[in-house]
């Protein structure tokens, strides 16, 4: 009888031992996991000064700073086509619209909840500002607006700049600016 209990007991130990989670929780770092090794408790390590990640060499001053000869660039660092504008629209919707709203007037939901109202994109000063200025604000922040350089890729910041130009044009357009073949649809009453 004792032998049976011994066997049963041992097999129970075997079953319980198989509940170990070693394979589930391996002694390796996954992105953003904690660390008991590094003093700051992070497995993500800060980039050392002077290191350049592959494909991230930022040697195009216009692209990276939005400036030419110390002045805000009046031109885009790459050609703006429909794909760039579409990308700009999507990124604008994610990162800018919460405050600047979909039209760029500056009445976004976060503003309605107490954030300081940003300037409308449709004032003369901003309509006359060069593209490099908008890129610079996104890259370095402005007033209460934090910089977005760590959240929006460089090319996307230029795409957003291009889309802001679209908004400025659209919100300041006259009927004469509408292409001839689209005028008809504009004149029809809303469905």
């Amino acid at each position: 009888m004792r032998a049976i209990f011994l066997i049963l007991g041992l097999s129970l130990v075997g079953v319980l031992a198989s509940c170990r989670q070693d394979m589930h929780d391996q002694p390796k770092y996954k992105p953003q996991s904690g660390s008991s090794f590094f003093a700051d408790g992070r497995s993500n390590r800060p980039v050392l000064a002077g290191t350049v990640a592959r494909g991230r060499l930022q040697d195009d001053a216009l692209l990276v700073t939005g400036k030419e000869n110390g002045e805000f660039s009046k031109v885009f660092p790459f050609p703006v086509d429909a794909a760039v504008l579409e990308r700009g629209r999507s990124r604008y919707g994610i990162f800018c619209a919460p405050c600047h709203d979909a039209s760029g007037a500056g009445n976004g939901m976060i503003v309605q909840r107490g954030m300081k109202q940003p300037l409308s994109f449709h004032i003369d000063r901003l309509r006359d500002s060069p593209p490099g200025y908008f890129f610079d604000v996104m890259t370095n922040g402005f007033g209460v607006m934090y910089d977005y350089s760590d959240r929006i890729e460089i090319e996307d910041r230029w795409a957003i700049t291009a889309y802001i130009r679209v908004l400025q044009k659209a919100q300041n357009a006259k009927f004469a600016d509408v292409p001839a073949d689209k005028k008809e649809t504009l004149l029809q009453p809303p469905k």
Partner: peptide
């Protein structure tokens, strides 16, 4: 508030991780 997922989970379209935002993102507002 209607904030897009990607406002905070910025890397979700380009990498394995959606990633949690840094507290800088929280402090933006």
């Amino acid at each position: 508030l209607g904030i897009d997922c990607r406002y905070c989970h910025t890397s979700v379209e380009t990498s394995a991780q959606a990633s949690l935002p840094s507290t800088k993102t929280c402090m933006t507002c």
